[in-house]
Structures are given as C-alpha cells and as structure tokens.
C-alpha cells in the first residue's frame, strides 16, 4: 500500500496568474479574430445601430490589460516566487534540469516508464512556459505599439523592433497562433499526466497542493 501526502506547491499568486492568463487568452483570441475579420456585418444605420466593433475592441483591450498584469505577476514570481516557481527551477542549464528534460522526453515518447518526478514543473513543460512567457512579452509590445502608436516610447521601439503598424499587426496575428496551439498541447498533456500519475496535477492549479508518495 502506497501512501500519499499533501505537499504545498503553487502559491495563491501563481494560481491567480494562471487563471488571469488563461481566461484573458481565450478572450483575446476570440475578440482578436473578430477584430481582424468582423463577420457580424450589418446595414443598420441611425439610432438603432449599436457600436459592435467598438465594444469588441474595448473587451479586447480590457483582456489585454489583464494579460499584461498576469505577465507582470509571472515575472515577479520567476524571481521572487517559491522554489517551484523560480526561473532556475525550469531553465535547462543546470545538470539536474537537463537530466529531467531528457527523462521527460523519453517518458512522454513512451520509451521509458521511469519518471523523474519533481514537485514543480517538469522541464519540458517549464521550458515551454518560458517560451510562452516571451511570446506574451512580444504580444504586449506589439499590442501597445498598435494601441498607442502616437506615444513617443511605443513609436520609437515599435518602429525599431517591428516596423510599420501593418507589420506589427501581422506578427501579432501570427504569434497568437502559438497560444492556440500551445493550449491544445497544454491541456492534452495535463490530462495525460493526470491519468497516469495520481498527483492531482489539474486540481493543483486550483488548490495549490500536489499529492506525492510518502518516503
């Protein structure tokens, strides 16, 4: 009989970040598709008209500020979070982390049944989250460049890093696809892990607690 014990893993701030991030991405992608191609065209003029495009853009901007705040929280946690949340725990540079990366790759491709278990993210997940973090920074930069193109700061850096508004729009749109594809893989591997390992991976993002074998 194997016994398990509760171990505190994710702080309340990280869980807050996660759900702000996840929900804002859903809203941003949905409204973003609409803004790129406003399908609900109508021919209603005058007092019966309703500013639909303005409202969709407004929701997009509210979600964008939520998204930016979430990214700011994650940046704080990468530096000042608990051990599992810090960037050194998932940066593939130390021997311990590289070992975990290869072991996870072998485990995920069904080659090895061994599982280098740790309390925080495995390296494959953690490194993907780090890439997503940088993609999020890019979305914030390109987004604010398009929202405030007249402001000297955004104009200067936007022109240097991205080019014209049209180029910013294209890159903003292309990088959005990373978030959609990431979500599919993310949810799949969470479910996959939750089925194979009884640590309560999915519920840990609500409760902050994982279940680990008692040693």
């Amino acid at each position: 009989m194997v016994t398990y014990e509760k171990q505190r893993c994710w702080s309340i701030l990280l869980r807050l970040f996660h759900w702000m991030f996840a929900l804002s991405i859903v809203v941003l992608a949905t409204t973003g598709f609409y803004i790129n191609n406003p399908w609900a065209g109508n021919m209603i003029e005058g007092s019966r008209a309703w500013p639909i495009t303005s409202y969709v853009r407004y929701i997009h901007f509210i979600a964008a500020y939520t998204f930016s705040s979430a990214v700011a929280i994650r940046l704080f946690l990468y530096i000042f979070g608990n051990k599992q949340e810090r960037v050194l725990d998932i940066l593939p540079v130390t021997g311990r982390n590289l070992k975990n990366l290869f072991s996870t790759l072998l485990h995920y491709s069904y080659i090895s049944d061994k599982h280098d278990e740790r309390l925080g993210h495995n390296l494959l997940a953690g490194a993907t989250y780090l890439i997503t973090f940088f993609a999020a920074l890019f979305m914030i930069l390109s987004g604010f460049y398009m929202l405030f193109p007249e402001v000297a700061f955004w104009q200067k850096w936007g022109v240097i890093l991205l080019g014209s508004q049209q180029q910013a729009r294209l890159y903003h749109h292309l990088v959005m696809w990373w978030f959609i594809i990431f979500s599919v893989i993310h949810v799949y591997f969470l479910t996959w892990n939750d089925i194979r390992h009884p640590e309560g991976l999915i519920s840990s993002m609500f409760t902050g607690v994982k279940f680990k074998q008692k040693v």
């Binding site: 191609n37 406003p38 609900a40 065209g41 109508n42 021919m43 209603i44 003029e45 008209a49 309703w50 500013p51 639909i52 495009t53 303005s54």
Partner: peptide
C-alpha cells in the same frame, strides 16, 4: 465602429459608403 462593412467592391454596402476595412 457600428459594424457596417463593404464585403466586396460594388456591393450594396459599397454604394452606401460603408467602411472599407474588410
């Protein structure tokens, strides 16, 4: 802002002078 778009050149919306965004 109010969602009135020209879908293709020469359509009714184009004749009415709607937005050329699309």
């Amino acid at each position: 802002n109010e969602g009135r778009f020209v879908e293709q050149y020469g359509d009714e919306a184009h004749k009415l002078g709607y937005c050329l965004f699309k």
